[in-house]
Simulated assay, not measured.
Amino acid sequence: MTALLVLLGLVAVGAVVPAPVVALGPGPTFDTLGDVDGTPVVSAEGLPTYPTEGHLNMTTVGVTDGVSTLRALGMWASGDYRLAPRYTLYQPGMSVEQVTAENQVEFDGSIANAEAAALTYLGLPTRVTVGALTDGSPSAGVLEAGDEIRAVAGSPVTSVQGLLDALARVRPDEPLELTIVRDGGAPRDVSVTPRGHPDDPDRAFLGITPATSPADGQRLSITLGDVGGPSAGLMFSLALVDKLTPDPLTGGRFVAGTGTVTPEGDVGPISGIRFKMLRAQEVGAQTFLVPAANCAEAAAEAPGGLQLVRVGTLGEAVDALETLDRGGTPASCG
C-alpha cells in the first residue's frame, strides 16, 4: 500500500510540475501568396502586380513551453516532437516577453532582407534607408526610420554595402555629415556623431539598421502577426517575385519551403526542418524548397511523397520553380 501511494504521488507530481524542457514540433504554416485575416501577407504599391496561382507556404516550428513532466514524456514518445532544454530557447534571466521581442527583431530583419533580395533579383530601382534605430542609438533624434540616406561625408551611396563601406572609413566620436531625404522632402544635411561599435571600438557605429527600399512612391509590405524568427525570408522573397512578374511561379502547384535570405539573395540554413516538412505535407504541399545546407538532414527525415528541391539562392529557387512548370526536374536533396 505504501509503495502504491508513493507511486500515485510521483504520478501526481509529474502531472503538474513543469519539466525544464520545451517541446518542439510542427508549427503553423501560411501561404505567402494569400491573406491572413483579410490582409494580404505580401503586397506592393506603386508597382505593377500580377495574378498568382497555387501556394508558396512558409513553415514554422511550434514551441510548447510549460509542459508537465508526464506530458513531456508523452510528447517525446509520440515521435512527433523533440524535447530540448528550456535554456536553449529561454536564456536564464530572460523573460518570455524578452525572447518574443528578440524573435520579432529577427523577423523584422528577415522581412527587410526578403524585400531587398526580391528588388535586387528583379533589378528594380532601390534606395538606402534607415530600417530601424537600435536602443540608445547615437543617431536618435537626428535620424528616423524610413529616412533615405543619399550620401556620407559628401560621397553618394547607392546600396547598403556602399553605406557600410563608407562607414568603414569613418572614425568614432567625430561628427559625420549625412545627406538624407525624409518623407519625400528636399535633400538636407544632418550631423551624427558615431560611437565605437560594441564589438569593435575602433569601428564607427551609427546605431541604425540600414535597409534596401524600393524607389520613391513605391512600397512593399509583408504582414504576418504572431510569427518570429528569420527563416521565412526565402518564401517572402519568392512571393514578391511572383506578384511582381507576369507568369505565376508555381504553375498552380502547392509549394512550401523554408530558409533565411540575405539582401543579396543567398539562402541560409534553418533549424527544425523535419517538423516543417511534416506540417507542409499535412496541409497538402507537393514540393518543399530546402536550403542547400539543410539538404542532408532533410533527405534523411523527409516524409514519403514530398519532393525536395535544393536551393542555394533566390535565383536558384525561381529557376527551380520554372523548371517544374516546364515539366523538368530541378536539383534535389535526394
Rank of each mutant, 00 (worst) to 15 (best):
M1K: 03
A3P: 05
A3K: 06
L5C: 08
L5F: 08
L5R: 13
L5I: 13
V6A: 15
L7S: 08
L8Y: 04
L10I: 13
V11C: 11
V16Q: 04
P18L: 08
V22A: 04
G25W: 07
P26R: 08
T32K: 03
D37A: 15
G38C: 10
T39K: 13
P40R: 00
P40D: 04
S43D: 14
Y50T: 05
E53C: 04
H55L: 10
N57E: 13
T64P: 01
G66A: 13
L70Q: 09
L70G: 00
A72S: 15
L73S: 13
L73K: 02
L73R: 08
G74Q: 14
M75Y: 08
S78W: 00
G79W: 09
R82A: 12
V96H: 05
V96S: 10
V96K: 11
E97C: 00
E97N: 05
V99W: 05
T100Q: 14
A101T: 11
Q104W: 08
Q104P: 01
I111T: 12
I111W: 01
A114T: 08
A114M: 12
E115T: 07
A118C: 09
A118R: 01
T120F: 01
T120D: 12
P125G: 06
P125R: 11
T126F: 01
R127E: 14
R127C: 04
L133G: 04
T134M: 14
S139K: 01
A140V: 11
A140Y: 02
G141Q: 11
G141T: 11
E144Y: 06
I149M: 06
A151F: 04
A153Q: 14
S159M: 06
V160W: 01
A168W: 03
V170C: 07
D173E: 15
T179S: 10
T179V: 10
V181L: 04
D183F: 06
G184R: 03
A186G: 00
P187N: 10
R188C: 00
V190G: 01
G196E: 02
P198N: 12
D199A: 15
D200H: 07
D200G: 07
P201R: 14
A204Q: 00
F205T: 03
F205K: 00
I208Q: 04
T212W: 04
S213T: 15
D216I: 02
Q218G: 02
G228S: 10
S231Y: 00
L240C: 10
K243C: 09
T245P: 03
P246N: 06
P248A: 11
F254D: 13
A256S: 14
E264W: 06
P269V: 07
P269C: 08
I270V: 15
I273S: 02
F275T: 00
M277A: 07
L278R: 13
A280G: 04
E282M: 03
V283Q: 11
V283Y: 01
G284Q: 07
F288D: 06
F288A: 08
A292Q: 13
N294A: 06
E297R: 00
E297Y: 03
A298Y: 09
A298S: 09
A298E: 01
E301V: 13
G304Q: 12
Q307V: 13
L308R: 00
V309R: 05
V311K: 03
G312K: 09
G312A: 14
G312L: 09
T313A: 09
E316A: 15
E316H: 10
V318G: 08
V318L: 09
A320H: 02
A320E: 03
A320Q: 02
L321C: 05
E322H: 06
E322N: 10
G327H: 06
G328F: 03
T329A: 13
S332P: 05
S332K: 04
